[in-house]
């Protein structure tokens, strides 16, 4: 799930400058922009402007990190799921997210950067991941809401990426979107069961919706006017629909679904605007967003610590397997 249209440059890095190239590269670059923008697919070994490569590495790796970090808030409840059916579903879903992270790391690796390098950037705090996973899952209802709203937002973000100009990324997204189709449905299904249950269960759902609503709207990234990478990404066919359009699409869909569920969203400004044909909604607290992105959300430290611990505690295992392989260069098992 979850690339935020959060292609957020680190402050030191700024926006890639496509004009900072030698002249012949500049011409090549212009031709490239035209092809990528007109829907031609770029493959791993094709020539591409350094800025395109850099933008893709950043976006795909942020996306991959988000999947992996995203396993943690849900993993928080896997041992406590209230029924064996829900436990099964949750474990399968968390496992899928690991798979999605893996597909995305592989797509990023085609651009000439290793998974180890990418993970090192995550562990050092240099690389970003979706801000949403820095919020805690406090009750079981959070698991349903993560499925319904967080995965719902992610799907809206991700579907356009299946047509992105970089082939390996687009193919990974096709696979991810196909697998993810059950994630949002299971979340809604779980919440529906709770809403048909006891008053305590219903209160738990509403409380979770209240806590997640605004952070989910932030998943779509800054407003278009404040989104510094959007223009270039759009030109290159990496990004096809703007942050604000995707956010609006999400709000409209979520409103209809909330009525079926019988929950409300914590926004007094939410109302149908017949003239626009969309729901209006209140202002987003961007100070909170940047605060979380910059490392000061409720769980940033814990999420990173968990990833670093897994990496460090796994080091002797990875080293052992490499050592074994070096000692036993087994003849490849015949295929077919």
């Amino acid at each position: 799930m979850y690339t935020q249209s959060l292609d957020i440059p680190s402050p030191a890095e700024g926006v890639p400058d496509p004009t900072a190239l030698p002249l012949d590269e500049l011409a090549r670059s212009a031709a490239f922009n035209e092809r990528a923008g007109s829907g031609e697919i770029v493959e791993a070994k094709d020539w591409m402007p350094p800025a395109y490569r850099k933008t893709l590495i950043r976006q795909i790796s942020q996306h991959a990190h988000s999947e992996i970090v995203g396993m943690l808030p849900e993993g928080n409840w896997v041992t406590r799921a209230p029924s064996l059916k829900r436990k099964t579903i949750l474990l399968a879903k968390i496992q899928d997210e690991g798979g999605h992270g893996l597909y995305l790391y592989a797509a990023a690796e085609t651009l000439g950067v290793s998974r180890d390098e990418l993970q090192a950037a995550l562990h050092s705090g240099k690389a970003k991941y979706s801000s949403i996973f820095n919020y805690p899952t406090l009750t079981w209802a959070d698991i349903g809401v993560v499925g319904w709203l967080v995965d719902g937002a992610a799907i809206i973000n991700q579907v356009p990426l299946c047509r992105c100009s970089y082939g390996p990324y687009a193919r990974a997204m096709v696979r991810i979107c196909r697998e993810e189709s059950f994630h949002q449905r299971q979340g809604f299904d779980s919440l529906l069961a709770m809403m048909q249950g006891t008053p305590a269960q219903r209160a738990m759902v509403q409380d979770a919706v209240n806590r997640w609503w605004w952070p989910v709207l932030m998943m779509f990234g800054p407003h278009d006017k404040d989104s510094q990478n959007s223009e270039l990404s759009t030109k290159w066919g990496i990004k096809r629909i703007s942050n604000d359009d995707l956010r609006q699409q999400f709000v409209d869909a979520a409103m209809a679904q909330s009525e079926v569920l019988g929950v409300s969203f914590p926004d007094p400004h939410l109302q149908w605007n017949a003239a626009r044909g969309h729901y209006d909604f209140g202002p987003i607290d961007w100070a909170e967003f940047w605060n979380v992105v910059n490392g000061h959300g409720p769980c940033n430290r814990e999420r990173l610590q968990a990833r670093v611990a897994a990496w460090e505690e796994g080091e002797w295992v990875r080293a052992a397997a490499s050592a074994y392989a070096a000692k036993h260069p087994a003849p490849a098992r015949a295929a077919a």
């Binding site: 798979g99 893996l102 592989a106 690796e109 696979r175 397997a321 074994y324 087994a330 490849a332 098992r333």
Partner: peptide, 20 residues
């Protein structure tokens, strides 16, 4: 072709490919 993965050796690569 359906994707790629990291594995220390052929036997584990095959097993992990099955799981992934």
């Amino acid at each position: 072709h359906c994707g790629s993965l990291h594995a220390p050796d052929g036997q584990l690569a095959l097993q992990l490919a099955r799981d992934v």
